[in-house]
Amino acid sequence: MSASIISFWSTHFALLKSEFWYLVVSGITTGFLYGMVAVGYTMVYGILRLINFAHSEIFMTGAFAGYFLMRRFVGNNTPSGAQSILLIVGGIAVGALASSLMAAFVLERVAYRPLRKRKAPPLAYLISAIGASYFLQNLAGKEFGRNPIAMPQPYGNANVFTVFGSPFNQYDLLVVVAGILSLVALDIIVSRTKLGRSLRAVAQDTETASLMGVDIDKTIMLTFLIGGAMAGAAGFLWGLNSNVGSTMGFVPGIKAFTSAVLGGIGNLRGAMLGGMILGMVENLAEPFVTSAYIDVVAFVILVGLLMFRPTGILGERLGRVA
């Protein structure tokens, strides 16, 4: 009995050892993507005390926008060089733009603002969010087909360098660069600018902020714009490596929400950190857990966190960011 347990673990650890750096690299990329989506959850939660269920569909919107751009401009031959860079930057930009518009001008306007004006109770928001999520998901499914579609590749995804014998591809580089740039930019916006100040003010105390002359509606709209842009960029990047489809947002959405809770919901830097931790844990758990149960790992982490440490690692509150 004990011998078999030892052999079980030794084979799995051998697997972990041989694939370690490969898993670390993919952990980092998944971590950045989770983090980029998680900041959207955390910002909206910080301000509206709402789990924005439809954020996963905002993510999906960005992926589709990028997909349409690729579909239009990527021909039969895989582009290279400057053309690749242009396409990728274009894809990120279009994804971010589409998602932020969808989040701020459709989702917030239609599903949340009327409730806010009426001071509806929180459950009403949550239900409206669930409705919006289902609506968008299935509208996309109806219009663009319900099967996952492969994204036309704008680049060769060549190997950039190797980390201890394991490849670090252009995709990994792309995600890391995009992730660092966007998260740093976001952090600067929230901690240094006037917009960031009003954001934090609204998060701490909406009524006082409004008395102090902060335009609540505008701040909330900007929150959705920023969170949407991050999710849209992440959506395009995600779709680049796997597929694009109407239900693609659900699992990454739950994972990103888990990341946000992990870092302390409402806490921006916490969300980034939480994304990184979850990405790592999930990838390093791969040698030990059958792939079908990887999602269960995230759910178990989420449920455990909510029950035993709902404030996460860094604690709640958007106001604490800076």
């Binding site: 239609v110 599903a111 009327p114 409730l115 509806a120 009403a124 928001y125 239900i127 409206s128 669930i130 409705g131 919006a132 999520s133 289902y134 609506f135 968008l136 998901q137 299935n138 509208l139 499914g141 109806k142 319900r146």
Partner: peptide, 18 residues
């Protein structure tokens, strides 16, 4: 299509809440 039902249900949820 059969799956369109969920689109209508989602819309219904939002409409009811509003």
């Amino acid at each position: 299509q059969a799956s369109d039902l969920y689109m209508y249900l989602g819309a219904l949820l939002i409409m009811m809440m509003i």
